[in-house]
Nucleic acid binder design. Structure first.
Length: 292
DNA sequence: AAACAGGAACCAC
DNA sequence: GTGGTTCCTGTT
């Protein structure tokens, strides 16, 4: 185990970060810390005092202080000035201000593209506990084992590892109708049919087209991938049932929620929040989901 | 036991 | 390009 302490951090609340619907492999521990599996690491993160967190890395290989710092800086989006973003968003209206106050420690993680693609294909027509369960099973069956203090954790499978799963294997693990979509998209990644290297250079519109060409990826899943992976496109606004509800309640006020066109939501988000739409989405989503 | 929750694909139009 | 229906599993 290697450990690093991050101090003088602001806008950083573990519950807000891991509970705002952007990730599936972080779990709350009894001591209030969170444990997650990220790339080849098992990571435990604990808020030890105000503006200070302790991050422990467990892996089958060693990691230096420098690597851990770089990793945290990137993964936890430490270079982004959330204070400034929150100020900008807060002045838009009272709703936005209220939801920011509620989830003021949210940060958008920069997650692995491949893992995010598969995870959000699985998320289609699905709920968070079940998505988490399926991803655990995929990892346990096809990922690498990491042992930490007598407990076993499994990394998310690589495209090669997941390609060992047949469609019926996937069906048995509970993927349902998503089995074929995961299988086919895995084949595309395995055979490098998607040019990962230059993705960062492309426009968001072009990237979204590429993502939607993958089986199981539609507009909403593509937006999630664009926002939650290291592609970091904050101007997208993923619209799921919760966002549809919150946008209708706060702004559109249409009597029948089903009558709303996603284009109207997109237009509103774009006009109101601009390039910060994705981050605004996170505050609104976190706030609305906790209203249940 | 039957209804419900949740996005993409597919087929009409 | 839009609208309606179906896909699957777990929960209530």
């Amino acid at each position: 185990m290697e450990k690093i302490v991050l101090d003088k951090i602001d806008s950083f609340d573990l519950k807000h970060i891991f509970d705002c619907g952007q990730c599936f492999r972080w779990n709350n521990e009894i001591d209030g810390s969170y444990t997650g599996i990220v790339y080849q690491y098992v990571i435990n993160i604990k808020n030890t005092e105000k503006n200070k967190v302790e991050v422990k890395f467990y892996a089958n290989e060693n990691i230096t202080q420098k690597d851990m710092l770089e990793f945290c800086s990137k993964y936890f989006d430490l270079e982004r000035d959330y204070k400034k973003i929150k100020q900008e968003l807060s002045v838009i209206d009272e709703n936005m201000k209220k939801s920011i106050d509620y989830g003021d420690g949210i940060r958008i993680l920069n997650q692995d593209l491949w893992e995010t693609v598969i995870s959000y294909i699985i998320s289609a027509n699905n709920n968070i506990p079940r998505i988490k369960g399926i991803i655990e099973k995929l990892s346990k069956n096809f990922g690498n084992k990491i042992e930490v203090e007598g407990k076993e954790y499994y990394t998310f499978p690589t495209p090669y590892q997941l390609s060992k799963a047949t469609v019926s294997d996937l069906r048995q693990l509970g993927l349902g109708f998503r089995d074929i979509r995961v299988y086919e998209t895995t084949q595309i990644f395995l055979n490098n049919k998607i040019e990962i290297e230059n993705l960062g250079m492309k426009t968001t519109k072009k990237l979204k087209e590429i993502l939607i060409s993958l089986p199981g990826v539609g507009p909403k899943v593509a937006d999630c991938i664009l926002l939650f992976s290291y592609l970091k496109r904050t101007e997208v606004f993923p619209v799921d049932v919760w966002i549809r509800r919150v946008i209708n309640d706060l702004y559109l006020k249409c009597e029948d929620e089903n009558k709303i066109n996603n284009k109207d939501i997109e237009k509103l988000a774009n006009e109101k929040f601009g390039y910060l739409a994705g981050i605004a989405q996170q505050y609104l989503y976190y706030w609305k989901r906790d209203q249940r």
